[in-house]
Design a binder for these strands. Structure first.
Lengths: 142, 142
DNA sequence: CTTGACCCTCCAGTGACTGGAGGGCCTATC
DNA sequence: GATAGGCCCTCCAGTCACTGGAGGGTCAAG
């Protein structure tokens, strides 16, 4: 199978598939003309990667998960740990975003949004506290 | 004021402050020795940027917000639009992450996490459907 | 034989920094 | 005056997971 068929099957763009080969996640064979030739096992791995990425796993997590998948003697505890760690990170991120949302919702609600210059959003950003605003959370890294 | 004092005052690392100068968000003056000299207005802007970044605004949003802040004749509607757009993006992201969380929670709960190899997490990633799993959402871009 | 759709590699850019090398400046102490 | 340590400077490279594009080879149909 050639790359564009694999792309259609897996939903991954050809560029991404080449990139995954570059970083050693898959090792498709090559035809005489230099074209990549994908076996079923390659397609299967790519689909696996697509789903893992859709769940937000990092590439390095994906590498680990693929290795565990290939290892018939794996302990499911190892897989679970990777998934649980990732889940924890997602929950942290949700919490951070919810906090941002709360502050922003408040500010947007307070702002008249007309053609006058007075704006509690800018007041908050300028002073750290709009008249009557919620405390601003100190969240970096998003 | 020199850069490390400003860093302490604003909570931004010196590297970040230099970067903000690089990309034209601030224009501190220079002393005879080539050191940056920050006026109160620079410190003020940096604090503004720190708070806007903490709320998840992109650098380009920050640039816009700073320009609006400096413009005494702005219409608050313009500020509100930037904030509302950003809020919408945050809400989308929360929804995506919640969907990932739901799937992951389900999979983690199903996985025994012992030293046997059977693992519904890997089954789901391999096939797109673990025995009895929730539908896998197709979320890229996180 | 040409057209158009493939395929290839390699390089550069994204966002928002961060780390480090290599070197100048400033203050205090010996 | 020499030296030590703590500042400051610039410039380059790396992060993550791709994505776009240039420049060029291959293949099947008409």
């Amino acid at each position: 199978m050639n790359i564009s068929n694999v792309a259609k099957k897996t939903g991954l763009p050809p560029k991404t598939i080449r990139y995954y080969e570059d970083i050693g996640l898959i090792r498709p064979m090559r035809g005489e003309n230099g074209y990549r030739v994908f076996r079923d096992s390659d397609v299967h791995k790519l689909a696996f990667l697509g789903r893992a990425r859709a769940l937000g796993f990092s590439i390095e997590d994906c590498r680990t998960l693929l290795a565990l998948y290939e290892d018939q003697d794996r302990a499911s505890a190892n897989v679970k740990r990777v998934a649980q760690d990732h889940l924890d990170k997602i929950e942290d991120k949700i919490t951070q975003l919810q906090s941002m949302r709360a502050t922003l919702q408040h500010l947007v609600r307070e702002c008249a949004g007309d053609n006058r210059p007075d704006c509690p959003i800018l007041s908050d950003l300028a002073t750290g506290r709009a008249p009557g605003a919620l405390p601003t959370p100190d969240l970096r890294d998003t």
